[in-house]
Design a protein around this nucleic acid. Structure first.
Lengths: 144, 144
DNA sequence: AATTAAGCGGATAAAATTATCCGATTAATT
DNA sequence: AATTAATCGGATAATTTTATCCGCTTAATT
């Protein structure tokens, strides 16, 4: 479904979002640990997310990463996915055809349509704050 | 969504299924051409599909690949996908967590549930005959 | 000002996926 | 029996994805 990088990105963003209310900044090591993700690779992903304005990075001693709490309901899952994997998952053709559309559909097109639409709708309506809430409230996990 | 190999596999299987009624056998070159897929790579994929009993291969001169027409409604899209990509797309966790389940869900779990279920249902209920039908009837394409 | 704890960016490495090549085998035709 | 048109299977190559390393910069503390 998503690339490994994107899975890590969603985990990291969710973790940071869950820390946003209490306002504690997390550094790379803490994030990688919390997300069960390789540290160096996570660093690269966080850089991308930071460039795309999804998370905020603070350099220097006692730096790290944060998400301003006013962004929790603004930033959607689709923004995270798009930043790392692009929008192909929910906009592209299931068979990888470049010119597949309603007029000239691939054989899978209409079978896939409602799934793709539901996926897109879910990604675009679920905020990172929603995920953080799931993590804090329910028994939701980011590891193993 | 699917790997490139799996996309090619679905295209090839759909093409062969569309030839099943008229009963004409297709060789590697014809299949690769019809599916806009690299020939040598397609060969490997066809071997896998053949081993898994999804298509039938005939060696020697005037050999090629076929799908017995009585299999058209029996073989499902899920069989093709499982043969090449495994069942992770519709059975695995969206965040790649090994132990994610209803009791210990990842933050995405319940947001994803209906999508995964619908995807699974679609793959398991759509036969390769259905796809072949779409290809023959509608303006459905396998290329570009 | 020096030290220290961070992220940044570029280079590199490892692993997986995608792709090609080619000799061996198979089977139909001549 | 020889030729030819195919798949099969193993080796290898190219590309992409995943992952690591390290020197540089940034900024807080001492």
């Amino acid at each position: 479904m998503f690339s490994k990088a994107c899975e890590y990105a969603i985990r990291a963003t969710t973790f940071l979002a869950s820390c946003a209310e209490s306002g504690d900044r997390q550094n790379l090591k803490q994030i990688a640990e919390a997300c069960d993700a390789p540290e160096a690779f996570t660093a690269k992903i966080l850089q991308t997310l930071s460039k795309d304005g999804i998370i905020h990075s603070i350099k220097g001693a006692f730096g790290g990463y944060e998400i301003p709490s006013d962004k929790l309901s603004v930033v959607k899952l689709s923004d995270v996915v798009k930043s790392i994997d692009g929008d192909n998952i929910y906009n592209g053709c299931g068979l990888g055809l470049a010119h597949c559309n309603e007029k000239k559909p691939c054989p899978l097109h209409f079978h896939f349509k409602s799934i793709r639409d539901e996926l897109k709708e879910m990604l675009e309506s679920t905020s990172i704050g929603d995920l953080a809430h799931d993590l804090n409230k329910g028994g939701a996990l980011l590891k193993r």
